[in-house]
Design a protein around this nucleic acid. Structure first.
Lengths: 210, 210
DNA sequence: GTATTGCAGTAACAATGGTTACAGAGCTAC
DNA sequence: GTAGCTCTGTAACCATTGTTACTGCAATAC
């Protein structure tokens, strides 16, 4: 396990911290599509992403969803982190976007390291900063963009995360992420295809030029 | 100055930290309506609110605005804080909602205190946590609520911040905050008045039962 | 092969919110 | 007083998004 952590975080943390992480962290592997944390769950630890991607979703009282952002290698979930400190329940749902590997750190340790290691402190601040930026980005999208532009941004983001131009997904799944209806997504995707920006197959969208 | 800081932050920070704040901080007073920081400005310090309220706004490239949240006594702007660490330009605009007093802390000090004082560290984490929560709240509102409900929430929030049921504001100003048009706000306010939830005068809205 | 299921395409319509245009009310300056 | 300005109310219309309903295609099970 040490090697995987070192590879992903070696450039950030000193040897002692990497060793501590190896010691107290638990390595977890989840398959694409698996739910990692559910809204209302008590947060028991903090995940450090080694490989893969996780999508973070918000849900309202009627069960409507909205994608907030993706976490990638080297990221951690500041939202979770916040919950840790407050001993609160999770405000969000986390679902593996691809097959994912991460290390789970117990809450107590992460508090201890905050005073012990400057690199850890900076990492945590950096994580908060990154999450705030992503949230701003999300707000910009839902406040200032029309659905067609939001959809284009969404497709670009997903293609980038996966590192491929093909996106495996049904229109309904996209509709959930963008908090709209399947019909709207089908309509807009067809329009994008007409414009030569994507090509459509069953369960797959190929990004050509977005 | 020491007294004002002690009154607002005495329950959080130890004597030495309060003294350091008094020493290096600059007390600022701004009138309601004044802009405290503009998008693109370099961030030179971090504000600790002593009294009053500040509203934080986001703007898109076309100049359209959106209210993100309010800061009150005891709050600090985590967004600013983020910018400090990254030496970046401000992503947001801050405008005094009421007459406001705050202490400006130089960046260097706030980094130093992060390792020196546990109480300061907790305060900073707490600030990040609070801002993330507010952002989630804002996202919920724009993603899941209709304009009439967003308007009601907005009026409730403003009445609470000011501690009065009368809100001094034109319909146009409200429209800017909610990123919509004056006509829409007038229409909805009239509907709320019909329902007996508010009463309307020129430049003033009185909250009756929201 | 056929039946079943899930997915995508499309039309018609409804609801919400945004835009334009204009009238009138209230305040201020003179 | 009245001239000029800002703010509010309202109607009519448009654009975008959401909803309902139905069709046909592709994959899978049998």
């Amino acid at each position: 396990m040490h090697e995987e952590i070192k590879e992903a975080y070696g450039f950030l943390f000193e040897k002692e911290l990497l060793e501590e992480i190896s010691e107290v962290g638990t390595l977890k592997r989840v398959k694409a599509g698996e739910t990692i944390i559910e809204i209302g769950d008590y947060v028991t630890g903090m995940p450090l992403l080694i490989d893969g991607a996780i999508k973070i979703l918000r849900e309202d009282d009627k069960g409507d969803e909205l994608l907030l952002y993706f976490l990638e290698r080297g990221d951690t979930c500041a939202m979770t982190l916040s919950c840790c400190l407050g001993q609160k329940k999770s405000e969000i749902r986390a679902v593996a976007e691809t097959d994912t590997i991460f290390v789970m750190i117990p809450i107590a340790k992460m508090e201890e390291w905050t005073s012990k290691y400057k690199t850890w402190r900076n990492f945590v601040f950096q994580a908060y900063h990154a999450r705030l930026s992503e949230m701003l980005d999300t707000i910009d999208a839902i406040a200032f963009l029309n659905m067609d532009q939001r959809l284009m941004k969404y497709l670009r983001d997903r293609a980038k995360i996966k590192g491929e131009v093909e996106i495996q997904s049904t229109h309904q799944q996209i509709a959930y992420d963008l908090h709209t209806s399947r019909v709207v997504i089908s309509r807009l995707l067809k329009k994008l295809e007409m414009e030569g920006k994507i090509s459509l197959q069953r369960n797959q969208i190929k990004v050509i030029d977005l």
